[in-house]
Amino acid sequence: MKLKTEDGGWSPYLAGALVGVLAIVSVYATTQWMGKPNYLGASTTFVRAAGLLERTVFPERVAANEYFTKEKVRVDWQFMLVIGIFFGALISSKTDRSFKLESVPPTWKERFGPSIGKRAAGAFLGGIVAMMGARMADGCPSGHGLSGMMQLSVSAFIALAMFFGTGIVVAGLLYRRRSS
């Protein structure tokens, strides 16, 4: 088992195990300093971001919305965590020179061509569907996949199986070209 990958990354086993340590420390730290445990997650932040943006145009609509009220539109712990992910990835990729500007990923290009417009439309529409699913399921691969599994939550096992099960079927249909 190699600790480094060819492009200077770390073994996924090592980086993953360190995320496990981070998750433990984070639950402990948030319990100590915030009075309640906060588990790693990301998707609720998109609700808060949507609420913050929508509030600039339709403040009363956001105030009256049941879901925004339930999830509380504010820049909280998880919101800052999501912003932190951006900077963490930027620091890591700039220091090991794996930072690369990419407009269309290779697998997508091979199947759908080099059009940025097509890629943008796919990413945007996929984003809408995925986020509706994540909010319905109350979690994404971070909240259910990592945090839920670590706690042995029943919902996490089912959600993760659905995420990957459906993902595998749809990706197979989308990207696997029939060799004819």
Binding site: I83, G126, V129, M132, C140, A159
Partner: peptide
Amino acid sequence: GGALFGCGWAVMGFCPGTSIGALGEGRWH
């Protein structure tokens, strides 16, 4: 919800947390 997420995830190629990180490493799409 899990099935909807899986469908969108396959097309988008990112999950919520990794999309922000991917932007950080230059994958601006």
